[in-house]
C-alpha cells in the first residue's frame, strides 16, 4: 500500500484505498443550470425515447470491439456519468462486458457514479472517435472531469485503442439518415 503524507502532522503514513462517491448535484459542471418547472418530466420522457437507440448502439460497439474492455481493469463494473451539457438528460455507462449498461438518465438522478465526464455532445463524440485529444480538451477547460480520475483515464485509453470511428459505425446503423444527421452535427460543431 502506498505511503501517504499525513496533512495534519506532515509525516508519511499509510491510508486505506480511497473510495470516492460524487454527488452529481454538487458537480453541476461547465455551467450552472436552473431546473425549470416541468424539466424533470421532460428529461424522463427524453430518456424513454432514446433508450432503445442507446441499447442497440452500445451492444453493437461492444460486439465489434471486445478488446476495449481489457484496458478498463477493475473499472468494468464502475458507473460513469457522461453529461452532454446541451442535452436534457445524461448518460449512464457501466462498461461491464457481461452486463453492459448504457442508458439515458435524468441529470439529477440520485446516483453515485465513480466519475462524471462533462462537455458539449459533439466534443464528447469527437473524443470517443479520437478526432479530438482529451488532454487538449481538458487544458482548454471544454472538458470537465470529476470523481475518480483513474477511472476516466482507463476509459479514455480503452476507447482510444479502438480503430475506426464509433460515431460513423453508429450512424451507419441507421443508414443514410444516420450519416446525414452525424454530418449535420459535425458541421454545426465546427461552425
Amino acid at each position: 500500500m502506498a505511503r501517504k503524507m499525513n496533512k495534519a502532522n506532515g509525516y508519511m503514513d499509510t491510508g486505506a484505498q480511497k473510495t470516492r462517491e460524487i454527488n452529481v448535484e454538487e458537480h453541476s459542471g461547465l455551467s450552472a443550470r436552473l431546473r425549470l418547472p416541468g424539466q424533470t418530466g421532460l428529461a424522463r420522457l427524453a430518456c424513454l425515447a432514446v433508450q432503445p437507440l442507446l441499447t442497440r448502439v452500445v451492444g453493437r460497439i461492444a460486439a465489434r470491439h471486445p478488446s476495449l474492455f481489457a484496458r478498463l481493469g477493475d473499472y468494468r463494473q464502475a458507473d460513469f456519468l457522461i453529461d452532454p451539457v446541451e442535452f436534457p438528460f445524461a448518460l449512464h455507462l457501466r462498461p461491464d462486458p457481461d452486463d453492459l449498461v448504457f442508458r439515458a438518465v435524468p441529470r439529477h438522478l440520485d446516483m453515485k457514479p465513480v466519475a462524471v465526464i462533462r462537455g458539449r455532445f459533439l466534443l464528447l463524440l469527437e473524443l470517443i472517435d479520437a478526432e479530438q485529444d482529451g488532454d487538449a480538451a481538458f487544458f482548454s477547460r471544454e472538458l470537465e472531469i470529476t470523481g475518480d480520475t483513474e477511472a476516466v483515464v482507463r476509459l479514455r485509453n480503452a476507447l482510444d485503442d479502438v480503430d475506426g470511428s464509433i460515431a460513423q459505425e453508429t450512424a451507419a446503423m441507421f443508414g443514410p439518415p444516420g450519416r446525414a444527421i452525424l454530418s449535420r452535427l459535425r458541421r454545426n460543431y465546427l461552425d
Partner: peptide, 12 residues
Amino acid sequence: SPASDVEYVRAE
C-alpha cells in the same frame, strides 16, 4: 502523479 491520486474539484 498517478491518476488514482489525482482529483479535480470544481467550485460554484
